[in-house]
Amino acid sequence: MGLFDILKTKKSPECKNDLGTRQPTDSSALLLQRLEEKIITAGYTVTKHPQYTSLIIENEIEIATFIIENPDYHPSLMHLMIVTIHNTYFPSGIEENIVGVGQTIDEKIESVLNNYIYTTFTPIIESFTEFHHPELDFQSDDVLWHPNLGNVMIQGNSDIQIEIDQLYLLLKDELKKKCSADKKFHWLKIYISKQANKESMGECLLDNEPWEAGIDILYDFAETWHYKTDFVGVKQFIMIKKCDLYDTNPQG
Rank of each mutant, 00 (worst) to 15 (best):
D230W: 01
D72K: 14
C243Y: 09
E96R: 09
S12L: 14
Y246Q: 02
W225N: 01
I125G: 05
Y191N: 13
S180F: 07
K11R: 13
T9Q: 14
K16S: 10
D216G: 07
T224V: 03
P147R: 00
L32M: 13
Y89N: 04
V152L: 05
I105N: 09
S158L: 02
P147Y: 01
Q139E: 12
K11C: 04
K11D: 07
I67K: 07
L80D: 10
F131P: 00
D165M: 04
T122I: 07
S27T: 13
H186F: 06
S193P: 08
S200I: 15
Q166R: 08
K177I: 04
E62G: 08
V46F: 08
I109T: 05
H86Y: 06
K108G: 00
A42T: 04
A196W: 10
I39P: 03
N148A: 14
K38P: 00
S193W: 02
F237G: 01
R22W: 01
F237A: 03
D18N: 11
Q139R: 07
I238P: 07
W225F: 12
E223Y: 07
G43E: 09
G233I: 07
D220T: 12
G93K: 10
Q166I: 00
L19P: 00
G252S: 09
Y73M: 12
N115V: 02
I160Q: 03
D72G: 09
E212M: 10
K242S: 07
K198H: 11
F128Y: 15
I240L: 11
D18C: 14
T120M: 00
D18R: 01
L32Q: 13
E14S: 11
E95V: 12
I215G: 04
T224Q: 14
